[in-house]
Design a binder for these strands. Structure first.
Length: 289
DNA sequence: AATGTTTTCAACCGCACAGGA
DNA sequence: ATCCTGTGCGGTTGAAAACAT
């Protein structure tokens, strides 16, 4: 159900992603984090940064849920949409594992369709969040979601509404942890903030398995300034320890990085790789099929 | 079985915003 | 203050899958 792959006028590939591209993207993100999508083309992945980000966020990211929405999730989407309007990313923040794109699709293909099919729940023009102005300028001008009664939307699913699992409190929504069908801890997880750190659970089926940490060791001969390693990078034992830290590769390069070749204390970062030897880059290519 | 129609959802596009130069 | 670049968001598209005739 996706566009067939093609190459645009800039030589960037578009359309459906291949397994090889997915592997490259996974490897890149796990190696360097996701702080600069535009560097991907340097890694043999001829995709624009936006495309890479979208693919990662909506599909490859560990923990992304796929499949049908549960009753609880559906109710939560409805409630949040009533409250927030088409703020899909904000809605997604309250549904662990669901992406804004998926929720948006879910809303348009299921909820709206069901409403339209059932005259009893037909929208009153201008009275639902879905009828809100689409442009951000208009949204800002009005600055509040239009109201819709709870009963109007919840009667979409009588059983769900009578056994509501949703708590609304100060804009923070969560699934009722006493629910027999809901997950007790799921709602407590800050999915989007917890995604790329060392604590990420990669054990789920289908998730990319990180390579063993020992594979990431800088070869000792490259730690010497006499080696072919660029003299700008004078690796120390501390550097090796830092780079082996569980959070390093999964985290960002906000600190301890520099664009400056003369910065003797800089770690390797994707910014600095162009034209230089990058053992990780070499390893990365060796591992790919 | 063949054909037409509808549904689904991954991916694209344009815009707005933030931050740095 | 202005421009540039990168990122994130929401709306839309379009082809495959599912369903109906």
């Amino acid at each position: 159900m996706v566009r067939p792959p093609y190459v645009d006028s800039n030589g960037l590939k578009k359309g459906a992603w291949s397994d090889d591209e997915d592997n490259k993207l996974r490897a890149y993100v796990q190696r360097y984090g996701h702080w600069n999508w535009r560097l991907l083309p340097k890694y043999g992945l001829a995709r624009c940064g936006k495309s890479c980000r979208l693919r990662w966020v909506n599909y490859l990211q560990p923990g992304v849920k796929r499949g049908n929405f549960s009753k609880e999730e559906e109710d939560l989407v409805v409630k949040l949409h009533n409250k927030l309007g088409n703020k899909w990313s904000a809605i997604a923040a309250s549904l662990p594992g669901r992406t804004d794109n998926e929720i948006k699709n879910f809303w348009h293909t299921r909820i709206e369709r069901r409403r339209n099919a059932n005259p009893a729940h037909k929208k009153v023009k201008g009275n639902t969040a879905a009828d809100k102005p689409s442009s951000k300028a208009q949204v800002l001008a009005e600055d509040k979601p239009s109201a819709v009664t709870l009963s109007e939307t919840l009667t979409l699913n009588e059983s769900a509404s009578s056994n509501s699992l949703i708590n609304l409190q100060n804009s923070t929504l969560s699934l009722d942890t006493n629910s027999s069908s809901g997950s007790a801890t799921e709602s407590q997880v800050d999915f989007w903030a917890d995604t790329f750190l060392g604590s990420t659970d990669y054990s789920q089926e289908g998730c990319f398995q990180p390579l063993p940490e020992e594979e990431f060791l800088i070869p000792s001969e490259l730690s010497s300034s006499e080696s072919s390693y660029p003299s700008a990078f004078c690796w120390s034992a501390d550097d090796d320890l830092s780079i082996m830290s569980p959070n390093f590769w999964g985290g960002s390069f906000v600190s301890n990085t520099s664009n400056s070749e003369s910065d003797q204390t800089s770690y390797i970062s994707p910014q600095e790789i162009g034209g230089y030897y990058d053992p990780f880059f070499e390893y990365f290519h060796q591992q790919l099929p």
